[in-house]
Design a protein around this nucleic acid. Structure first.
Lengths: 146, 146
DNA sequence: GATTGAATACTCGGATAGAGTTTGTCCGAGTCTACAGGG
DNA sequence: CCCTGTAGACTCGGACAAACTCTATCCGAGTATTCAATC
């Protein structure tokens, strides 16, 4: 998310090494995550010299949920193992991921989490950043200038 | 959670082995989780023959969040590593777990999740179970009878 | 027959290994750039 | 002086190990029961 925000301040491709150096991160590892963002259509990659990553679309059109799903995967955090299928009164033909009352409650909670993340875009977060720390964009632009 | 619900149908201590046999679970592993629920004050343990676990308080007074916190631990699922502390414009004296805009948004989403879990008690879930499957309590009582 | 004592079986409780997922690393394929040689 | 070809360096991309968390297991401490011996 921070890398996406940083890319929002500039308008030219930035290499993984440059982005990683901002926070002292392992470049190869960050690259792995950025690739996931490319597969999700959030970033685009440019090979060769002067290449790197840039935003595929405006920050307004990228929700926090988009980023989370891209990095963490599409599976929900709570996974129902259908445990009561093997219990007394359990039927093999019922899908307890939707029928089990416990699973329903857990999914409802996770849905609230996702709803909150979906309602917030990276542009909203960027606005908060500039409000709280107006010279942050300048710092980032300077660090990412060619 | 299922074990707590099951204990809600009976009023005598039930051993780990009995509870585990309901779903074909490893008894020693379930015991570990039940111990966590005891430490959290949700269950009480009774040693010796005819011992086991029983509810420490009524299901109405146990929220899903209580169970989750007892088993998963008190730490939030999202942990801010204060990454921007090492970036340009980062200050060592600021706690970015509360100051960072990204962290704020993630925490807000997790708060929505916790709020949902806190608003729902095990008694609510038990009511759903009896509504959807009225003979489930009978099945469990029969399986857990001395 | 009632009581007391010890032995026994059953329970929880925390310390100890094994699998799975996340984190971190490496090298190869592709591409733009820059330079040198020739026209 | 301009053009073209080639070598080089830089980038992403996916395949490969290490660390950590979660899952699963084992054995010891404690307690109610039960049985037998005694009063």
């Amino acid at each position: 998310m921070h890398s996406c925000l940083n890319l929002g301040w500039v308008d030219h491709p930035v290499s993984t090494a440059r982005l990683a150096r901002l926070y002292g991160l392992p470049a190869a590892y960050l690259n792995k995550q950025l690739q996931a963002l490319v597969r999700a259509g959030i970033l685009t990659s440019v090979p060769g010299p002067h290449g790197g990553f840039r935003l595929a679309r405006n920050l307004e059109h990228v929700s926090l949920l988009d980023v989370v799903v891209a990095v963490e995967g599409p599976d929900s955090a709570f996974r129902c193992t259908q445990i009561i299928r093997h219990g007394p009164g359990g039927r093999p033909d019922v899908d307890y991921r939707s029928a089990c009352a416990v699973s329903q409650s857990m999914r409802r909670a996770e849905l609230a989490w996702r709803r909150e993340l979906a309602a917030r875009t990276l542009a909203d977060v960027a606005a908060d950043v500039t409000r709280q720390n107006p010279d942050a964009p300048g710092h980032i632009r300077a660090a990412l200038a060619r």
